[in-house]
């Protein structure tokens, strides 16, 4: 069947008259249309009659590539994510500044962890924080509309939590330092304590 179809195409090339029916079938079928194109190309090459650049079916390839191109969608999505991130950063900024003012040291202790969070969120649950969010909060099926406020809230909670941990760690270190003092005071400073006791009734 297909053999005869190509014979028709071949015949048409050589200016043999064909049935109208066959002619229609050749025109309507993609395969034979391609054959037709190829035969002409072969003829052109044989006659040394090719156009300057052989386009083959570049036009269709390009059209297809554009249609399938994934990068067309990606910039839009990125913009969206960046916008939400920027909002979170804006929210986070005041806290960050407070933290810097309060203690550069505290930041030094946990700073690396927080910067890592921004870079690689995935690693956080495994390495630093375990059971950070209630399990239900993560498993909740959230619709697209609610996703970004939820994420922002979670980030906010995360920042709060990091601040809390940082403050506790710094305070613990401070108290340990001071405990060395009180131990010392209780060892050789009994007289001091007594003096204070005597002082109070007066």
């Amino acid at each position: 069947m297909s053999e005869s179809k190509f014979e028709t195409v071949s015949g048409l090339m050589d200016n043999y008259k064909q049935d109208v029916e066959k002619l229609d079938s050749v025109l309507n079928e993609q395969e034979s249309a391609q054959r037709w194109e190829n035969y002409h190309l072969i003829g052109d090459v044989l006659r040394d009659d090719t156009p300057e650049s052989i386009r083959l079916d570049l036009s269709t390839q390009i059209a297809q590539a554009i249609a399938e191109e994934p990068t067309v969608l990606a910039p839009r999505r990125n913009k969206f994510i960046q916008a939400t991130k920027a909002k979170v950063v804006q929210l986070a900024k005041p806290f960050g500044q407070v933290a810097i003012a309060a203690s550069a040291a505290g930041l030094m202790i946990l700073g690396v962890q927080t910067t890592n969070v921004a870079e690689n969120e995935q690693s956080v649950p495994h390495q630093q924080v375990i059971q950070t969010y209630p399990i239900a909060g993560v498993a909740d099926p959230v619709s697209l509309n609610y996703q970004s406020p939820n994420r922002a809230a979670q980030k906010q909670a995360y920042i709060e939590q990091q601040r809390r941990f940082q403050a506790l760690l710094a305070d613990h270190n401070q108290q340990v330092k001071l405990s060395a003092v009180t131990k010392e005071a209780s060892n050789n400073g009994e007289t001091q304590a007594q003096e204070q006791v005597e002082d109070t009734p007066k």
């Binding site: 962890q113 630093q128 924080v129 760690l169 613990h172």
Partner: peptide, 13 residues
């Protein structure tokens, strides 16, 4: 319960 490990130091809350 939430906690972090800073080296060997646990901070639990």
């Amino acid at each position: 319960m939430e906690y972090v490990m800073n080296g060997a130091t646990v901070v639990l809350n």
